[in-house]
């Protein structure tokens, strides 16, 4: 193999590696993802010190880690750092969403967080609307012989049996706030856990 062919093959190998990393950097803003890729390219080229053969490039990228590991570490560190400056519930859910594609735990955390916030919102909205529209806001059991329940506000009068009645106001407010808080804490815990896991993977 001529030096030029070997050099081209090495460059192609590096391009493939960096492209694979970029595919997993969706949780970063575009400009930051491009800069991360440029810096990793510079690192590998410094490491091989002019030897652009596939073997030298392969050895250098081996030291950096697999594309998924490198991307996961970059995204989780960035998202976790942002979360330390702003921990509003929306930012926590957004952070979990950005990390969801990086691991099975990320998917689990996103599903739990989304469901938790949705249920908390349903409890709070029902409690808030009940005093103004008591027939259409509440908790109903659709029929005695089924386990179908309905919580929230509807645009037609429910036919099932209403449970809790006016108690939905204090219970909905209390449960909604508690669930919202627990989901928020779970989100912060999950982001930190994913950062620890990502760091541990390259310890």
């Amino acid at each position: 193999m001529s030096p030029n062919t070997s050099r081209d093959a090495g460059q192609a190998h590096l391009d493939t590696y960096l492209h694979q990393i970029q595919r997993h950097l969706g949780g970063l803003p575009d400009a930051e993802a491009r800069e991360t890729i440029a810096e990793l390219r510079s690192h590998v080229l410094d490491k091989v010190a002019g030897d652009h053969s596939v073997r030298a490039i392969e050895a250098a990228i081996e030291e950096l880690g697999s594309p998924r590991e490198v991307a996961r570490l970059n995204v989780t560190e960035r998202v976790a750092a942002e979360l330390e400056t702003n921990r509003s519930p929306w930012r926590v859910l957004s952070a979990i969403g950005r990390l969801a594609s990086l691991s099975a735990y990320g998917v689990f955390a996103f599903l739990v967080s989304f469901s938790g916030y949705a249920f908390a919102a349903a409890c709070l909205i029902t409690a808030a609307v009940k005093p103004f529209n008591p027939r259409r806001a509440g908790l109903w059991r659709q029929s005695e012989d089924s386990y179908s329940w309905m919580l929230g506000v509807t645009d037609h009068t429910q036919t099932g049996r209403e449970l809790l009645g006016w108690w939905i106001v204090p219970i909905g407010l209390g449960l909604g706030l508690l669930l919202g808080w627990l989901t928020w804490r779970f989100g912060i815990f999950s982001v930190r856990r994913m950062r620890r896991t990502a760091r541990g993977g390259r310890a």
Partner: peptide, 16 residues
């Protein structure tokens, strides 16, 4: 230290 860990660390320090 693992080479892949230095850039996320520097990025965090830059953000701070």
């Amino acid at each position: 230290i693992p080479e892949g860990t230095i850039y996320p660390l520097l990025s965090r320090m830059k953000a701070e």
